[in-house]
């Protein structure tokens, strides 16, 4: 039902989520990612959500928690490609996800991660 893939691009983990995600899928993803970040000592996590037609409060919390756990492991998280209708709905729902990095495209997201690496 959902297709989630995690690809390692040098020191960045690129996560692509597509289709319908159950709460269980979301929790499994969070666990897998955190383990992955710790194992690979990745510097950044890019989560491509352009394939999602819905982000509800559960999934939003999952994204927020992934970012929080990754930050503890010294990796920056950037959510990429959120659709306009999903963004409007999240804001109406009352979720602004402060502190979560965002980018329009995977390329922009990589730029952002590299930029913050340079600034370090």
């Amino acid at each position: 039902m959902s297709a989630t893939s995690v690809v390692e691009l040098q020191d960045v983990l690129l996560v692509t989520i597509q289709g319908e995600l159950t709460d269980e899928d979301a929790m499994a993803l969070q666990e897998e990612l955190t383990t992955n970040v710790a194992r690979s000592s990745a510097r950044g996590v890019l989560i491509d959500v352009s394939g999602l037609d819905l982000v509800d409060s559960f999934l939003a919390r999952t994204l927020h928690d992934i970012a929080g756990a990754s930050a503890l492991l010294a990796a920056e998280t950037v959510v990429v490609g959120m659709r306009p209708e999903v963004a409007i709905t999240l804001v109406e729902l009352g979720l602004t996800l402060p502190g979560l990095g965002t980018a329009l495209t995977v390329a922009d997201g990589l730029d952002r991660l590299n930029g913050s690496a340079r600034r370090r």
């Binding site: 659709r83 306009p84 409007i88 999240l90 804001v91 109406e92 980018a103 495209t105």
Partner: peptide, 12 residues
């Protein structure tokens, strides 16, 4: 404000 936040969520 909502528009600005939605744009930020999209990465702009």
């Amino acid at each position: 404000l909502k528009t600005a936040v939605a744009a930020r969520l999209m990465g702009a």
